[in-house]
């Protein structure tokens, strides 16, 4: 099965930068970009315009911004962790916020990692590369579908 990276991000620039970093680091995985929290929920739970999607076909990793239109990243995280079908998907908070409060809420909500986007592009690119390396290539998640539990 193809390994899909799901990026939930509202900033056009940040999407572009992330894509640039992917390209620069020769990351070949398919990237799905969603622009707000609500769309992310619809995608993950195959609702609305994604109702035709196969629910078993879930991303390998979710890169989730915190500040999102409609539903915030933290709320989306809560929904992901609350549902058996999605709760084991590795989710990384990829955000501008260096606020302690956001970090605490992120980890409380069960994120697997919290990464502050550095201003300097080289550092940003490095961070994206490391994320890809670790979560897409090295990390293992159970293959069993969760609803069977």
């Amino acid at each position: 099965m193809e390994k899909v990276v799901l990026l939930v991000e509202d900033s056009e620039d940040d999407i572009k930068l992330t894509q640039m970093a992917f390209k620069e680091n020769n990351i070949a995985n398919k990237m799905v970009v969603l622009n707000d929290g609500e769309e992310a929920v619809e995608y993950l739970f195959c609702q609305g315009k994604y109702r035709e999607r196969d629910i078993n076909d879930q991303p390998t990793i979710i890169l989730l911004d915190i500040k999102l239109p409609k539903l915030s990243g933290l709320e989306v995280l809560k929904k992901i962790r609350a549902d058996n079908r999605t709760k084991y998907i590795p989710t990384v908070m990829l955000t501008s916020s260096t606020e302690e409060e956001d970090m605490i809420e992120g980890y409380k909500g069960g994120c697997n990692s919290y990464v502050c986007k550095p201003v300097e592009y080289e550092q940003f690119s490095q961070a994206v590369k490391q994320l890809e390396l670790y979560w897409v290539l090295n990390n293992r998640t159970p293959n069993k579908r969760i609803e069977e539990e």
């Binding site: 915190i66 955000t95 916020s97 300097e120 592009y121």
Partner: peptide
Amino acid sequence: FSYAVSHDLRAPLRSMAGFSKE
């Protein structure tokens, strides 16, 4: 305000730094 600064002021800087580099 701090939150906005932390979140919203840094994003454009990242664009400036990132795209000028590119």
